[in-house]
Amino acid sequence: MSTATVWLIIAAVAIGGFVLRAVFILVPILPRNLPPRLSLVLQMVPAAAFAALVAPALFLEDGRLQLISPATLAGAIALLVSFRWKNLALSIVCGLVAYGCLDLVL
């Protein structure tokens, strides 16, 4: 990826992100109560996007489907830790340690 493209991406995500954050704060005339069905759509975005990002990294190994692997087991551990203790850092650290150990063993 060329340097120009890198800076294009940085600029676009910076400007786009600022507009998304600022739209209601900077433009006070806009109605603040989003229709419930629009906020429903927006609520679904993080769950769907994170799952779509993470699933291929967990379940595909060199393009082949693997249901039981260091990645899926470590992922399951990270999920369980997160459900139990609701702690982002703990969940990341446990998942990485589990992956490191499982990768050596399996």
Binding site: Q43, P46, G75, L96
Partner: peptide
């Protein structure tokens, strides 16, 4: 593996209700 595991840790608290749980599975 640090990147996928971070997304997983962000995903977990999102799975608090049925619509978002099914959204994640299908996605």
């Amino acid at each position: 593996f640090a990147v996928p595991i971070s997304f997983l840790a962000l995903l977990a608290p999102q799975l608090a209700d049925r619509p978002r749980l099914f959204a994640a599975i299908v996605a």
